[in-house]
Design a protein around this nucleic acid. Sequence first.
DNA 1: CTGAAAGCGCTAACAG
DNA 2: CTGTTAGCGCTTTCAG
Lengths: 356, 356
Amino acid sequence: MTTGGPPTVETIAERAGVSIASVSRVLNGHGARPETVRRVERAAAEVGYVANAVARSLKGGRTKQLTFAMQDIGNPVYVEMVRQIQTITKAQGYRLLLHSTDAVAEDELAVVRSLADRTSDGLILCPIRITPEHIEALRTAAQPVVVIGSLPDDAPVDSVRADSVTGAELAVRHLAGTGRRRIAFINGPADTVPGRNRRLGYRRALDACGLPADPLLTVTTEFTIEAGARSVEALLERDAAPGDGLDAVFCANDQLALGASQALHSRGLRIPEDVAVAGMDDTVLVRACWPPLTSVDLGSAERGRIAAEMLLERIAGQGPPVPPRVRTVTPRLVVRASSAPGASAPGGAADGEVTS
Amino acid sequence: MTTGGPPTVETIAERAGVSIASVSRVLNGHGARPETVRRVERAAAEVGYVANAVARSLKGGRTKQLTFAMQDIGNPVYVEMVRQIQTITKAQGYRLLLHSTDAVAEDELAVVRSLADRTSDGLILCPIRITPEHIEALRTAAQPVVVIGSLPDDAPVDSVRADSVTGAELAVRHLAGTGRRRIAFINGPADTVPGRNRRLGYRRALDACGLPADPLLTVTTEFTIEAGARSVEALLERDAAPGDGLDAVFCANDQLALGASQALHSRGLRIPEDVAVAGMDDTVLVRACWPPLTSVDLGSAERGRIAAEMLLERIAGQGPPVPPRVRTVTPRLVVRASSAPGASAPGGAADGEVTS
DNA sequence: CTGAAAGCGCTAACAG
DNA sequence: CTGTTAGCGCTTTCAG
């Protein structure tokens, strides 16, 4: 007998005068006599029946939920990823669970381990650092995981990475190509994968262009707008001593570049006439800068999309087990007004360069 | 007998030589003989047992999940809300389900109706428009809902609203107070609640300051950066005909204000010397603008926090049923460089004004 | 303090 | 084509 709670298959069965099995079959389109179908559908509509997803999950072993875990949704890069992931998962009938780890490694591990509670069918993780514990947790993860980021070669899960070495190289070569000689570099934490890679790209580009690597031109800080501004202040002060000023600032992400632009404005320096500026990630912030910011698109949206697709493939998981896959997204330099040639010589276009 | 799948209470029971009931009791801290506790905990640790949350939900009728639905996570206002909501829900052991409706009313209704599938224990909804269908859906919602936005007085659910009438008024009075006379208004869609309210505030402030309401000074458009830029272009062209130029632009949100700032820059107009600019929402974009943008903080973060708290209270739901509550967050004008007095007279500080 | 057993709502095997 | 029944993994009476 049906009680006062929400309608269940039993409620419908009673009303339609059939068994709960028939209710389930009709509702899942598994075929039944037209008369049965009619009665069940009518009864379901009358009481406004909606199947209990939890019960269905318990039976089926799938929740139709995916988890996306990143440091902080305040970063536009993650916002872009969330959007892409959401679009794809929604189209396939999955719900999206959001988890901010606040860059706490402990919390990242907890997310991976909590896959064992069967709350979601898979995880897309953006780790900030990869420790041996991360690898171990990934190896024993209870559900498929796709990592957005750079993993060691023998890592046990699928991953999508940006090529930020090449990305940084593109930007710095472009700056050099437009006649800049004293190219400062504002980087994020050096002990993170992005930090290391971007520095490497910067160095390589300087070498390739025959520019000296002046340590006084590099600042290492956090990935924030404020840090970008402070770093420019620091650079300009240092600069007072060693001699000829900097004529370009390459920033390891757009937030830094935005802060840098503002600090340059405050100091009365013109962009790009006096100092060119370039960032990375090509987020919405590029249009927030004035002049619009040259930036390297590291494919946040694409990485999000690919990660979602890989994860769904893993979940579908038919056929023989596929070994971990690594996908790399090609960076793309987007040139805007902030890096137009300055007072000195103009320069030509380099590889992978695009104008927007 | 336990099969090859993930460990269950049965696995533990066998290993520990007790019943599944004892396993459950120990794992939930319901007390047992020390010896029993020891054996269960040991067995659980050995196999790395993690309780299946789905089964637990089915039994308990609660999923420990909350849903947050808004138009588009690309809007910084929602990002701020998500952050707050996440902080609170996480602290209480809830997971957060994100749902972007893309401002499709149909989709909003679907979210409310889908509460019946018991996937989450409650919903925080940011509707863009409120139709009678919305009200009806809310009345019959299967789980508690809190709306962030302005609902009719007899609406059947809790809500938190911004006071954007007062907010707009604050901003416009401030602009007038610093000597601006021709204050343009770039608004979002007029058929939305925010659009209507902000226009009302603008009008009221003009009246209060004895300024004429020139229809040529108002543009109605979408809430985007590009729309802000286009609107300024349109205003400047119109302006060519009627005579003396505008000396301030009040924008219905920060995205519009950012676009407006950029268009003004492009036209060679100086901010704030030639034209003052003010926005609304006080998002991260205020620091992206140059000069930093005066904006009205409508309390996005606070609204998110309050909504989460109200929802959790409803879910706890002890005692007699509480009638729907409405909370209003007080707006706060944050004055920055974009609205410093221009070529003309300076002005004093108005009520609710803050300098940042 | 412990075990047996019911049951959350659903789907799917198995008979009929 | 349809009904009966088992069972997903867990918590919670109810006896003992």
